[in-house]
Deep mutational scan, measured.
Amino acid sequence: MSIQHFRVALIPFFAAFCLPVFAHPETLVKVKDAEDQLGARVGYIELDLNSGKILESFRPEERFPMMSTFKVLLCGAVLSRVDAGQEQLGRRIHYSQNDLVEYSPVTEKHLTDGMTVRELCSAAITMSDNTAANLLLTTIGGPKELTAFLHNMGDHVTRLDRWEPELNEAIPNDERDTTMPAAMATTLRKLLTGELLTLASRQQLIDWMEADKVAGPLLRSALPAGWFIADKSGAGERGSRGIIAALGPDGKPSRIVVIYTTGSQATMDERNRQIAEIGASLIKHW
């Protein structure tokens, strides 16, 4: 067993022997301040990774656009098919120029040779490549099948209805392509620590998230040296922004954090800054 596999296998073990965790309302004060600064709703939840206990939450059962955070769930569904012998990570998928959609920095470079399922998941999570996500959605049967996968996990809230990039439209009061912070946090925890996926697939999923290259201005910008984070960000229309993450000190994750916002007129930089400040408060009061 590799060191990384050992780390993920012992996530519940280490967490069980940690000192009790206590909620700190100071972080919620910052979440509410972010709402004021952005002029928009902000949803927040913080779960203990081992027990699933909610440590703090704000608007945990209000719907927010998922945006690209759905790509972690998508690759979880792909990995479940791999575990069941219905898919192979090494299978190569070929596609054409007509398949390319807006923001496809990886797939646009491989029109000639195609990409493997493993490479597509890596591109979808680490670079948020939209064509990679659409190609992977095709392998599982489309958005409705991802929703069905989530329902089978016990998540009857999260739903995907459309493809990239239309799913980022974020129309107010439109339930399409949305989740709730509580539902997303619980589902992410199941994917990373539950028995739904094999140990190898859980490790692969967290490795992809740990290698995320496009979430630097968010929670990662607030992390002290030595902290662990595996995350996936999302951005959408109407001032929408979000991030889902597993993080913790001492090089291992111990909490799940989900943050979503929508309806702001603020710039992307300002949305990023507010999420980073929430992260800084979380870490300060850990």
Rank of each mutant, 00 (worst) to 15 (best):
A9S: 15
R41G: 05
E56L: 08
L146A: 06
F17H: 10
D33Y: 14
R238P: 09
D113P: 07
R7A: 10
P105G: 04
S96I: 10
Y103K: 02
E87T: 08
L10C: 11
R162F: 03
P181N: 01
A230P: 00
L19C: 15
Q265L: 14
E166T: 11
P181Y: 00
L38W: 06
L136S: 02
N134L: 02
L135C: 06
P12F: 12
D231E: 04
E46I: 07
K144F: 15
T187W: 04
A124V: 08
M1A: 02
D48H: 07
I54L: 11
G234W: 00
A235S: 08
A16G: 15
V8Q: 13
P12L: 12
L55W: 07
V29E: 14
G242L: 00
L135E: 06
A225P: 15
Y260E: 00
I54A: 13
A222S: 14
R220C: 03
L137I: 10
D129Q: 00
Q4K: 12
T69V: 03
D48T: 05
W208N: 03
T178H: 02
L146W: 05
G216I: 07
M115L: 13
G242D: 00
I275R: 00
E46N: 10
D212A: 04
E210H: 10
R91G: 05
E145T: 11
E62H: 08
S57T: 11
T27P: 06
L247V: 11
R162D: 09
R238N: 15
S80A: 11
G114K: 04
A225R: 13
R189E: 09
R159V: 07
A133F: 01
L192E: 02
I125S: 03
T138Q: 15
A34P: 02
D155I: 01
G76E: 01
R271G: 08
L223C: 13
R59Y: 04
W227V: 02
Q203P: 02
I229V: 10
M66D: 00
V78K: 02
T126W: 04
V8W: 08
Q37R: 14
L135H: 04
L192V: 11
S51Y: 08
T198R: 09
L196P: 13
G154N: 07
D207T: 12
D250F: 12
A124E: 01
E35V: 04
A215N: 05
Y44E: 01
L167E: 03
L79S: 03
A230N: 01
Q265M: 12
L55D: 04
L73M: 11
T112R: 14
R271C: 09
D207M: 11
P249Y: 05
Q4H: 14
D99F: 07
R91Y: 06
T107P: 01
I171Q: 15
D83I: 03
T27N: 05
L247W: 07
G114L: 04
L28M: 12
D250S: 14
A235K: 02
I283W: 07
V42F: 14
N173I: 09
H5I: 06
R7G: 11
T147S: 10
F149D: 05
V258I: 13
G239H: 04
E35T: 03
T126S: 12
R162E: 05
C75W: 00
G154V: 04
F22Y: 10
F70A: 10
D269Y: 12
W163P: 09
G263T: 05
D231H: 04
W286H: 04
P253W: 07
R202F: 03
R202P: 01
E270L: 10
V214A: 08
F17L: 09
Q88F: 13
K190R: 14
D269R: 11
I256W: 01
G216T: 09
A124R: 00
I11G: 08
G85N: 11
D269P: 10
L49T: 08
A222W: 06
F6Q: 09
I243A: 04
D269S: 13
V31E: 01
F22I: 07
I244A: 07
L218C: 05
P105T: 06
L55Q: 08
R238V: 09
N152P: 04
Y44I: 08
E46W: 04
A40E: 05
G239P: 01
D231C: 04
G263P: 04
E35C: 05
D33V: 15
L150D: 01
T69D: 00
S104Q: 02
D161S: 07
T69Q: 01
S233P: 05
D174L: 04
G226F: 06
S80D: 10
H5A: 09
P65W: 01
R238A: 09
L73H: 07
A148L: 14
I125V: 11
F22A: 10
V21P: 05
T198D: 10
F64E: 00
W208C: 03
P60E: 15
A200H: 15
L219V: 10
G90I: 11
R162I: 02
A276H: 14
Q265Y: 12
I278W: 02
W208G: 01
N50V: 12
H156C: 14
C121H: 00
P249D: 07
K252S: 13
V21G: 08
A211R: 14
A246E: 06
C75R: 00
H285T: 15
D155Y: 01
S240F: 03
T198Q: 11
W208P: 00
Q86D: 13
A34R: 02
V8H: 15
F14H: 04
S80R: 11
P105A: 05
K144M: 12
Q86A: 13
A9M: 14
L136V: 08
A9R: 08
E35M: 04
S201Q: 06
L223D: 01
E61C: 07
I275P: 00
F70T: 05
A148F: 12
L247T: 06
L49I: 14
S122D: 15
L120A: 06
L197T: 05
S221C: 11
L219T: 03
R159W: 06
E169T: 13
S68W: 00
H24V: 14
L100H: 04
E175A: 14
Y95I: 11
A84M: 10
N134V: 04
M268E: 06
A183F: 08
T107G: 05
D207V: 11
Q88T: 13
T261R: 03
I275Q: 01
Q97I: 14
S96Q: 13
L135T: 07
R92F: 10
E87N: 05
G39V: 10
V21R: 05
E169S: 15
S264R: 05
A77Y: 12
T267N: 12
K190V: 12
A15P: 07
G43C: 03
A170G: 13
L120F: 04
D36Q: 13
V78N: 02
P165S: 07
N130H: 00
R41L: 09
T267Q: 13
A15H: 08
V117Q: 03
Q274G: 09
T126H: 06
L89K: 04
L79Y: 02
R63Q: 08
L160A: 11
L160G: 04
R238G: 11
S254K: 14
G226Y: 07
L196C: 14
R241V: 03
T116I: 06
D231T: 04
G154E: 09
F58G: 04
V42P: 00
A170R: 08
V214P: 05
A200C: 10
P12I: 13
L10P: 08
N130W: 00
A77H: 10
A182F: 15
F149C: 06
F6R: 09
L197A: 04
E237N: 14
R91D: 06
P25T: 11
M268T: 08
S68G: 00
I3F: 11
T267Y: 07
A266W: 06
M209N: 00
E166S: 13
I125W: 00
E87Y: 05
C121W: 00
V29T: 11
L197F: 06
I45Q: 05
V258T: 07
M180F: 11
C75S: 07
K190Y: 12
A200W: 07
I229Q: 02
P217D: 14
E166K: 13
P217E: 10
F149T: 08
L197D: 03
K232A: 01
M180V: 14
T131L: 06
N134T: 04
C18P: 05
T267P: 14
L135Y: 03
Y95H: 05
V214H: 06
T27E: 03
F22H: 15
M127K: 09
L188R: 00
I275E: 01
V257L: 09
I45C: 14
Q88S: 13
L74A: 06
